[in-house]
């Protein structure tokens, strides 16, 4: 049932932080970010778990950003750029693809669930696809549950 009370009435402050998974998405501004804008323009609904960080090109997304996000306790990360061959900077996403192919292996090696890291290619014309990608990613990350890898490590060490 829809809750029609205003936020003030429900008092956000006393509410515990969201139990739902929280995912950071690094989107290139030319394709995927514009695709996400188009999803908005066409009023495609998708879950609110994904927070977008805008980058000029997916190649700007240093694998360290993904690492940091997971280390700091985010439950999942999505990196998205233009379709291969359609990069605004002509070849940036090829670098991205290679960088993260290696990085994914590193995550596996360390023992972080592969469900936490995702990549996609969403063009500026694919608002529908963006909504679908978000739905899929949220579903998969939810299946992995909250990311406790690093917090547990800290407890073990401490």
């Amino acid at each position: 049932m829809k809750d029609n009370r205003s936020i003030k009435e429900r008092d956000l402050g006393s509410k515990p932080a969201r139990e739902k998974v929280k995912i950071a998405a690094f989107l290139c501004k030319w394709c995927s970010y514009a695709g996400a804008d188009l999803a908005g323009g066409s009023r495609k609904k998708y879950p609110p778990n994904v927070i977008v960080i805008r980058t000029p090109c997916s190649a700007r997304t240093n694998p360290l950003f993904v690492w940091k996000s997971l280390e700091k306790g985010l439950d999942g990360v999505l990196v998205s750029g233009c379709h291969p061959g359609e990069c605004h900077y002509s070849e940036g996403n090829y670098h991205t693809r290679r960088n993260f192919a290696v990085f994914r292996k590193l995550l596996e090696y360390i023992g972080i669930e592969p469900e936490r890291f995702h990549m996609s290619w969403v063009s500026a014309a694919e608002g529908d696809k963006w909504a679908e990608v978000v739905k899929d990613v949220v579903k998969v990350v939810e299946s992995a549950g909250p990311n406790t890898y690093f917090s547990k490590k800290k407890e073990d060490n401490g």
Partner: peptide
């Protein structure tokens, strides 16, 4: 902070959308 195309237009739940907007 893009709270229209990537927030208010794509979410129905006012509370969820507000929390996301705060994050953005």
């Amino acid at each position: 902070a893009n709270i229209r195309e990537q927030c208010s237009w794509v979410h129905d739940d006012r509370e969820e959308a507000t929390l996301k907007a705060i994050d953005i």
